[in-house]
């Protein structure tokens, strides 16, 4: 079987900022509840967040959204700085955080230009009844370690394992393997898939949009991180009739 290389496409023209991805991620990945004090202390953990940028001012104003998650860079700046190899790259193109190796130096977070690595300053707490909802497929991170988007590696693992045991082929864009955010995306702005499979939807989009006049770009490409998340620019065909 050919080795997969996972990647994502974010179509900014479709993202409507509804944040369904953020909540879906919190639900799937046992992300601690974001308390008011977390906001006050700037210690909010959101593996995927929707950033908002104002453009213009009243009345010619618009807010634009960019969902940002771990870019799973091929040349990830977070990896070489980890003294214990807790942050490493696996052969499926995933940037992996190994919780049981992590000693909490936070070097990786400092070196990440996308600010998508989060440190657990406190033990995550849930009321007893809410613990029933925790996903047993995902580690509940303890205090003192880093965490970040995994592309829902637990779903990838589970599906690959099931495919092997039950002998079926994993379809491109199958919901069992898509990360929680992709399945929840209301507008289908997020697309996940295997970039090594030339037939996959993501490969086709990549081939089309990475051309010179395509809409594709990577976040902060000039750093040379070669991310595996491709963004498609927002199309703006508004006509400013009141500009004089």
């Amino acid at each position: 079987m050919k080795q997969s290389k996972w990647g994502m496409v974010v179509d900014l023209d479709k993202c409507n900022g509804c944040q369904a991805c953020v909540v879906a991620c919190q639900s799937e990945n046992n992300i601690p509840l974001q308390k008011k004090s977390d906001y006050d202390e700037n210690r909010v953990i959101q593996w995927i967040r929707v950033e908002r940028y104002w453009e213009g001012s009243f009345p010619d104003v618009k807010a634009k959204f960019i969902p940002i998650m771990c870019q799973h860079c091929d040349e990830a700046p977070c990896e070489p700085v980890c003294p214990v190899y807790a942050s490493y790259h696996n052969n499926e193109g995933l940037n992996v955080q190994v919780y049981n190796r992590c000693i909490g130096t936070r070097f990786c977070a400092n070196n990440c230009p996308y600010q998508v690595r989060f440190f657990n300053f406190w033990e995550a707490e849930w009321p007893d009844s809410l613990k029933n909802q925790l996903n047993p497929d995902v580690t509940v991170r303890s205090r003192g370690i880093m965490e970040k988007c995994t592309f829902c590696v637990q779903k990838i693992r589970r599906t690959k394992r099931d495919a092997k045991v039950n002998g079926f082929e994993i379809e491109d864009g199958a919901r069992e393997i898509n990360p929680a955010c992709v399945n929840s995306c209301n507008t289908e702005a997020l697309i996940f898939g295997d970039m090594n499979n030339p037939e996959s939807k993501i490969s086709r989009i990549k081939a089309k949009e990475e051309k010179k006049d395509g809409r594709g770009y990577h976040l902060m490409e000039h750093y040379g991180t070669s991310p595996n998340v491709l963004y498609l620019k927002k199309v703006d065909n508004s006509k400013k009739s009141h500009s004089h």
Binding site: G17, Q19, S27, K35, Q46, R52
Partner: peptide, 13 residues
């Protein structure tokens, strides 16, 4: 829901 309370408003965060 603490998820939704703790979620940022999209426009103002």
């Amino acid at each position: 829901s603490p998820w939704l309370q703790g979620l940022t408003d999209p426009l103002t965060t």
